[in-house]
Amino acid sequence: MSFWTAAVIIVLIWGIVQIYTRRHDRDLGVTRDEDGNPVFAPSKADPEGDETRREIERLNDRIKVLERIATDANSQEAQERRRIAQEIEDLRDRQAE
């Protein structure tokens, strides 16, 4: 087998693989970005995917709120507010006695 025969066979195999993957990707709803990496596009007729996407958005919103609570509760300003509130409560307790 000559070099050119081997080169033609390799190019043919590569072309067949490219055709197969593009057809197969299109059936699965896969698109490619500019670098050729697969990007799974959501199907328009997939209500389960839409529901999943909405659930993920809700969970992301909840995570943002929890992160804000966790960081705000430990900030210097929040600690100062708690200290002042505790002092006010102590003064009310003394006044009640």
Score class of each variant (00 low, 15 high):
15 G>R: 03
85 A>Y: 11
23 R>T: 12
57 E>T: 08
29 G>M: 00
3 F>R: 10
78 A>Q: 09
72 D>F: 15
39 V>W: 03
8 V>T: 06
40 F>Q: 13
46 D>E: 10
44 K>D: 12
48 E>Q: 13
92 R>S: 00
19 I>G: 06
17 V>Q: 05
4 W>T: 06
62 R>D: 14
69 I>G: 10
46 D>V: 00
96 A>E: 11
69 I>H: 13
4 W>P: 00
18 Q>C: 09
63 I>V: 14
22 R>Q: 05
33 D>C: 05
5 T>S: 09
95 Q>K: 05
62 R>P: 01
7 A>I: 09
94 R>G: 05
42 P>D: 10
36 G>H: 07
7 A>E: 15
16 I>D: 00
21 T>P: 00
28 L>Y: 03
24 H>V: 01
86 Q>F: 08
87 E>A: 04
34 E>G: 02
20 Y>E: 01
61 D>G: 15
32 R>S: 01
76 Q>P: 06
84 I>A: 06
58 R>M: 08
38 P>R: 08
88 I>W: 12
92 R>N: 03
47 P>R: 01
42 P>N: 03
11 V>H: 07
5 T>G: 08
83 R>N: 07
59 L>Y: 06
97 E>R: 11
83 R>P: 02
68 R>L: 15
19 I>D: 05
38 P>Q: 07
43 S>K: 13
25 D>A: 15
52 T>D: 15
31 T>E: 11
65 V>R: 09
81 R>E: 14
78 A>R: 05
39 V>G: 12
95 Q>Y: 05
48 E>S: 05
45 A>Q: 07
9 I>H: 07
65 V>S: 11
92 R>H: 04
3 F>Q: 08
74 N>Y: 04
63 I>K: 15
79 Q>M: 13
40 F>S: 11
14 W>D: 01
18 Q>D: 02
44 K>E: 10
62 R>M: 07
48 E>L: 15
28 L>M: 15
72 D>L: 14
36 G>C: 05
40 F>R: 03
64 K>W: 13
1 M>K: 08
53 R>K: 13
57 E>G: 13
10 I>A: 13
66 L>H: 02
63 I>S: 14
6 A>T: 07
40 F>L: 12
57 E>W: 08
76 Q>T: 04
16 I>W: 04
6 A>F: 05
87 E>N: 10
96 A>C: 00
83 R>I: 03
26 R>C: 01
5 T>H: 04
